[in-house]
Design a protein around this nucleic acid. Sequence first.
DNA 1: TCTACCGTATTATGTGGGTTAATACAGTTG
DNA 2: CAACTGTATTAACCCACATAATACGGTAGA
Lengths: 127, 127
Amino acid sequence: MLQLDFRDRQPLHEQIKEKMKMLIIRGVLQPDEQIPSVRELAQSLTVNPNTIQKAYKNLETEGFIYSVRAKGSFVAPHPQKHAGHHPRRKVLLAELEKIVAELMYLREPKEQLFNVIHAIYAKKEVE
Amino acid sequence: MLQLDFRDRQPLHEQIKEKMKMLIIRGVLQPDEQIPSVRELAQSLTVNPNTIQKAYKNLETEGFIYSVRAKGSFVAPHPQKHAGHHPRRKVLLAELEKIVAELMYLREPKEQLFNVIHAIYAKKEVE
DNA sequence: TCTACCGTATTATGTGGGTTAATACAGTTG
DNA sequence: CAACTGTATTAACCCACATAATACGGTAGA
């Protein structure tokens, strides 16, 4: 299901969190859809169940999934309106600024960045 | 000069690298300007000289500074033309996609992202 | 030349996080 | 009852981070 890089210095639980987050954001996993159990995913990725649980715990804290004892873990419903005070928002915008600043430093054309954003937002409207 | 967060889990040498990178990108430090020596910055930040050296070494690898034995470390000249094959470019664009995708998920208006980019690129033209 | 400073390298040491491992508990499902 | 869920706890190992002490080679100024 997911592909991990065991040689990367990024922790496995973070890699798992990021990949799962992407699948949810991109709509590959639908709201209320059940995701693999802790033990099942651990076995298929050949990692320890604790590593999966840490990833799932963080995903739940960030609002991407919800877990029900003895039933399983599921994709959380998508946000319905723009929450300007969302805790993640400030972090994301700050990161965005850093990246754009460095791309500008490398003489990346501004229009290219617009194209990237357009492509992502256009994709969303399809799903 | 720089401000570090010793409680942050981000390594000190990475914090130093990122802050210095920002000062260079934003034009606070001019090309060929000398930056603090390893020992000097170590003392003023109350960290070990080895930590500074690791930050400087990575900054040099990424092309933001250059170091001359027995003379000091200096801000590298800015890139003059867009290098589409630059190693950092691919990484930065990939990160950009991740962040924009998550902001879209949080229902951030597309126009807001455009404004951020506009502001950064506009700032550059002043300097 | 002497002194002070520069970048750079090496080795040793302590600490904390990431990961694995082995259990255990509580609740649901068939 | 059996098999599966999420969750919690404890111990152990490894490695990156950071510190510390020291040294080498080259430059600059008194």
